[in-house]
Design a protein around this nucleic acid. Structure first.
Lengths: 153, 153
DNA sequence: TATTGTTATACTCTATAACTATA
DNA sequence: TATAGTTATAGAGTATAACAATA
């Protein structure tokens, strides 16, 4: 009758994401960071150091969430907070030497994981490239027009 | 330096999924069910009615989670529990007439949402089809080989 | 008054442990 | 003893409200 669950787009996106994040977690395990933490390091690794709020906006999370994320990274010695001299309300967050090393190696593993993930599903490089380009459109075209069909039940 | 966040596969999968589930939620809003609840109805709509545990396995959730899901659906009058005569430990869960109507209309809207979502990103039907086939492989090829690279930091 | 970081709190989602009734 | 459903509880993950320091 109804299509099987495994052909539903929502299910597929969710489980593809789950599979990938598990692969990523495995790859980062011995580096002692999570994928989430690596993403924060990526955000923070810019020429002009960011405040916590800037980083939060960049990552698309709340500033209260960013407090906890920075806490974790600081506990591991990967970043350091310091008061901004320009505006003493702000914490400037910068990578430590250890943080930079971890970022470099984490990124290497991340790239490797992406390649392995796409190749592991038997995708040719051309297919993989097409897939990622399509995915990018679906991830960023935030607003599909609101059709809001009539209630016919 | 590092690739921008928006080209990371994990980020793209997560946000594509978020976008889609928001579209789905909007489409189902006036039907008064969530995407999750519709998925449960899909699972339950089979010739041989399922027990709660069977349905949980089918959906890939815990049996305690299924209790709450069935509670919600029963409160809305979409399903009914009855004790299995064969094994009185089991609850057989069946769609009510209202549940069947809701499922039919929900599925119609869901299909419409999928089409709109893929078309909305400017995908041709051929691209959309290819995308879904690739996604299916990525969602189901659960285990990528564990490379577990050396710690080079 | 508004903003940044922080804390306390709450809410969602989900799983584990323990209870009950059945087998 | 084991299984199905249930409840209580706890753990992520994240957000809202309130507070202190600063602007």
């Amino acid at each position: 009758m109804a299509e099987p669950l495994t052909s539903r787009l929502g299910y597929l996106l969710k489980h593809a994401q789950l599979n990938f994040s598990q692969s990523g977690a495995r790859a980062l395990e011995s580096l002692n960071i999570t994928g989430r933490q690596l993403a924060v390091l990526v955000v923070l690794d810019v020429a002009e150091p960011l405040s916590q709020l800037d980083a939060a906006k960049e990552l698309g999370v709340d500033r209260t969430t960013m407090v906890a994320l920075i806490d974790e990274l600081e506990d591991k010695g990967l970043v350091e907070r310091r008061r901004s001299p320009d505006d003493r309300r702000k914490n400037i967050v910068e990578l430590t030497a250890h943080g930079k090393q971890t970022l470099t190696e984490g990124e290497r593993r991340h790239q490797e994981t992406e390649k392995a993930f796409l190749a592991g599903a038997g995708l040719t490089p051309i297919e993989a490239d097409l897939f990622v380009r399509i995915l990018k459109r679906l991830a960023t075209d935030a607003e599909t027009p609101d059709d809001q069909p009539e209630d016919k039940t």
